[in-house]
Amino acid sequence: MALGTARPALPALLALIGALLPASEAQVRLELSGRNLHPTVTHENDSLLATAHDKANMEEEGTHQLSCVVTLGHQSRSWRENVTIYSFPAPNLTLSEPEVSEQTVVTVECEAQAGALVMLSGGVPARLPGPRAQLQLNASAEDNGRIFFCSALLEVAGQVLRKNQTRELRVLYGPRLDKRDCLGNWTWQEGSQQTLTCQAWGNPVPELKCHRKGDNALLPIGDLRPVTREVAGTYLCQARSPRGEVTREVVVNVIYHRNYILTTILVTVAFTIGAAGLAAYFYNRQRKIQKYKLQKAQEAAAMKLNTPATPP
């Protein structure tokens, strides 16, 4: 069990005495409740520093008197102060199972020594003044990688001490391939620089492959530099892991430039030919109508000449 001291700190107690002449001849005695601590003394000019390292045990927990006596010649100076020896190990944070499948009930428990108060992650306090806090959750994919935080508080000699502990929960779940992570339709300009983003989620991480319908061509996930018309098509993206598989259909459209000059020429030629043909049609039709009318007029004149006149 970890032990400590509260004001002044042990096992590193410092006793600094100034204005000693000569400091090298001074004698220092450090005692903790009458027990000699065997200090190490260092000198610098007219001062000295005494340091004592002591390993306390559980039986010594509580308040003790620390005394420092410096003797030089026939004169002595002493200093006394109360110190508190305490035991405060880190809290114990446990998960009923550190790795679970979805929809498994997980119990999280935080426990500290008697007299301490604990706080579990999410602000779930223990019932005062209990040293335990507990919560349960139905594990979901969103809980994968969740960190639980347990904090223990202990008041010692008017000081509030804190120690923490953390644990991580791993949740196993099958592949996810949602619209927000893998769009169902991409439309790009040929020659442009694009990034095809299609992210599958799961624990363990699933393998993702997209194959085009028909020729089974593989669609590269990531950078397309540049985009070519050959990648256009409908693909089936499949995410697979030991916990299952899921498929999503995606469509890649590529807009590419056609030879508009040639198209314009062809349209112009077709229009010209059409217009010329239409003009010729109306011209020939008009000639036929005029010829027909002339013929009818000639026939009418001939009949009029051949008809005998009526006698008076």
Rank of each mutant, 00 (worst) to 15 (best):
A300M: 04
V156D: 01
Q286A: 13
P204S: 04
H211E: 04
Q159E: 08
I147F: 13
V156I: 14
K209R: 08
P226V: 11
T234S: 07
P98W: 06
A19L: 11
P98F: 04
N138I: 15
T51E: 15
P220T: 06
E97G: 08
L48H: 01
P312A: 05
L14F: 12
V100C: 14
G174M: 01
L236F: 03
D181G: 06
S67K: 03
D143I: 13
G130Q: 12
A152T: 00
R7F: 06
L128S: 12
R170F: 11
L183Q: 14
L66E: 00
Q75E: 15
A275M: 14
L219D: 00
T42N: 13
Q103F: 10
A302T: 06
S24L: 14
R229C: 05
C237H: 02
T310W: 03
P129C: 10
E249M: 04
T228W: 04
A139K: 00
A232S: 08
G158D: 10
E155V: 13
L16T: 11
N138D: 08
N45S: 13
G174V: 02
Q165H: 12
A157K: 11
Y256T: 09
Y283Q: 09
Q75N: 13
E97P: 02
N164K: 09
S192C: 01
E59Q: 14
P311W: 01
E230T: 13
R77C: 07
R146W: 02
K291Q: 11
E97V: 07
G4E: 05
Q159G: 09
Q134S: 13
A280R: 13
V246R: 02
V160H: 04
D178Y: 01
M119P: 04
P175K: 03
F149E: 06
H257F: 09
V252I: 14
E230I: 10
Q189I: 13
Q193H: 06
Q199Y: 05
A26F: 00
K55D: 15
V41H: 00
L172E: 15
R285P: 07
Q136V: 08
N185M: 07
C237R: 01
A275H: 07
H53M: 10
T94E: 15
E61Y: 02
L135H: 12
L183S: 11
T187W: 10
V231Y: 07
T247P: 01
G4Q: 06
E60H: 00
V227Q: 00
L236T: 14
V254G: 00
I265A: 04
T71W: 02
L183K: 15
R243L: 15
E97T: 10
A116M: 05
G222T: 04
T63R: 09
L72S: 10
C237D: 03
E142V: 14
L13A: 14
V251I: 13
A52M: 02
T71M: 02
A239E: 02
A139D: 03
E81M: 11
R167W: 08
I255W: 08
P204H: 07
N253T: 15
L14P: 07
Q113P: 06
L72Q: 13
A276L: 14
A26H: 01
H38S: 15
T187S: 12
L21H: 11
H74Y: 07
D178W: 03
A126R: 05
L72R: 15
D143N: 11
L218P: 01
T5F: 12
L49C: 10
K291P: 03
T307M: 06
D223M: 10
L135I: 11
G18A: 11
A133R: 00
E142R: 14
P129A: 10
K179W: 05
